[in-house]
């Protein structure tokens, strides 16, 4: 099936004995695609400004670059992943390469920091997961990922009372009224988010709801009622963004934020459980 067999590679090729993991270099994998022409990688650099190159096998092409195991070996990664500045830098470089090739062809982005000892091992992975990778690529061909978030200000206009409560009972009554008003506002917002997601999903090839983001990270105000990812055929992207605009106009208490287009991170997925 493939011209690179996997079995003889229990011993890392060219890497010497196992204790050498942590020194030397390795191959960092950005993405897989069906085919990328050789000249498409000319002048393109990835992590640490290293040039990217292609690894082909089993009718698939992986885009890789060389990384230093001092930084990307097991010890280095364990240490570096706790460093948010390092992580951001790597995430943006990774995303830059994926974006670049994603503009040209259907890509399946690999998770950050997937590292093989050498290109032969990368070729082995392509062969091992050929069918699943091809199915992923077929699923996302001609599509891009968009993000739509719905942010609702649940307590924006509820501080209209200027009179001070005259007693403890009055205070409690006011608090109770505020609480129930907020509760029903929350329920309405949740229902509105469901409707937005359902409507958008009708136009898309696939959709997913991601967990709401923490406002302490994003800095957004209000509640994120929807954090949706949508796989939109590229010839419908205008229609999609127009629909987001229409839906947003009908939501007085909320705003919709459109992000993208991105490579299909949330849809060209493949998990092995291993």
């Amino acid at each position: 099936m493939s011209d690179v067999t996997n079995e003889p590679m229990a011993e890392p090729m060219g890497g010497g004995p196992a204790e050498s993991i942590g020194a030397g270099t390795a191959s960092y994998v950005y993405l897989a695609a069906r085919d990328i022409p050789d000249d498409a990688v000319a002048g393109i650099t990835g992590l640490e400004s290293q040039p990217v190159r292609l690894v082909r096998n089993a009718g698939l092409t992986a885009v890789v670059s060389t990384v230093d195991l001092a930084e990307f070996g097991e010890d280095g990664l364990r240490r570096n992943l706790e460093d948010l500045a390092w992580l951001e830098h790597v995430a943006r470089s990774h995303n830059g390469v994926v974006h670049h090739f994603g503009r040209q062809t259907a890509v399946a982005p690999w998770r950050l920091a997937t590292i093989m000892l050498d290109d032969e091992r990368v070729a082995g992975l392509l062969a091992d997961w050929e069918h699943q990778l091809k199915a992923s690529l077929d699923r996302v061909a001609g599509c891009s990922e968009w993000s739509v978030k719905m942010i609702t200000e649940l307590s924006a206009d509820q501080r209209t009372e200027t009179d001070q409560p005259t007693s403890g009972t009055a205070y409690l009554q006011r608090r109770r009224a505020e609480y129930s008003r907020q509760n029903s506002a929350q329920e309405q917002a949740a229902a509105a988010a469901d409707r937005v997601h359902a409507t958008l999903s009708g136009l898309t090839a696939a959709s997913r709801r991601l967990p709401p983001q923490d406002r302490r990270l994003t800095g957004h105000r209000g509640e994120m009622m929807l954090n949706g990812a949508y796989l939109v055929p590229d010839d419908r992207s205008e229609e999609f963004s127009a629909l987001v605009g229409e839906l947003g106009a009908d939501l007085p208490e909320s705003r919709l934020e459109l992000g993208g287009p991105w490579p299909p991170y949330s849809f060209a997925t493949l998990e092995t459980g291993a």
Binding site: L31, R78, R111, M116, W129, S136, T269, L270, A274
Partner: peptide, 11 residues
């Protein structure tokens, strides 16, 4: 997200 395959460098 994306393709999650175990690499040689196992974090």
């Amino acid at each position: 997200k994306g393709v999650v395959l175990a690499g040689d460098i196992r974090v």
